[in-house]
């Protein structure tokens, strides 16, 4: 059972506040690029190169921006995401009981799609491609733009939220008609 919003909301807000107080605003989607770079570099070295001044760069302009992180992936932001996964796992073990059927396909999707769990996995994969493409174009995701951005009164955060809900509401209304 999830926390009531009157408790969950303030607690989540405190976490976002603590992140800014102690280090910097929370963001996640950049790490997908860094992990991509690390995987690429591991399988086909040469994506990033070290210049004479010791700084890292890449012939691919976007990877060049993150070349330093790709060279040294054990940094704050990557560890943060790894710790998020650990925290979510601990919390799920301690409080959550996710049934096996739910792990294959969430109830709401099972109710609305007749394609079974393989169809759900395909949708989930496609969703991932679309979400991260959009997040990187926007320069952040729900955490970095919507939550961290709006709490700082960043105008970009509001524009991002407007764009995201502009398509998310109609898409969900069309695809998820049955309730579960």
């Amino acid at each position: 059972m999830v926390l009531n919003w009157k408790i969950g909301g303030p607690l989540l807000g405190i976490v976002f506040f603590l992140a800014v107080l102690l280090v910097k605003p929370i963001g996640v989607s950049t790490q997908f690029v860094v992990i991509d770079g690390v995987l690429w570099e591991r399988n086909a070295p040469g994506l990033i190169t070290q210049g004479p001044d010791g700084g890292w760069t890449s012939t691919y302009p976007y990877f060049a921006k993150y070349a330093k992180d790709i060279a040294n992936p054990v940094n704050y932001s990557v560890i943060f995401v790894a710790a998020m996964m650990g925290g979510a796992l601990l919390s799920a073990v301690a409080f959550g009981r996710i049934p096996l059927r739910e792990r294959f396909s969430p109830a709401l999707w099972s109710a609305n799609f007749r394609t079974g769990w393989i169809g759900r996995w395909v949708l989930s994969f496609l969703g991932g491609v679309i979400v991260l493409y959009g997040a990187r174009m926007a320069g952040g995701c729900t955490s970095g733009h919507m939550m961290s951005g709006m709490m700082q009164t960043a105008v970009s955060g509001y524009l991002f939220a407007f764009g995201a809900f502009l398509t998310a509401f109609p898409t969900a209304r069309m695809l998820l008609k049955k309730e579960a």
């Binding site: 979510a88 398509t167 509401f169």
Partner: peptide, 29 residues
């Protein structure tokens, strides 16, 4: 920001995940 947000919104509704919640959900099994 607007175009990327709009693209993200479609995938968000299709999958029910955003980047942070997706990696956490994967961790919960």
């Amino acid at each position: 920001v607007l175009l990327g947000g709009a693209i993200l919104g479609i995938g968000w509704a299709i999958s029910g995940y955003c980047p942070g919640t997706g990696v956490c959900a994967a961790a919960t099994g």
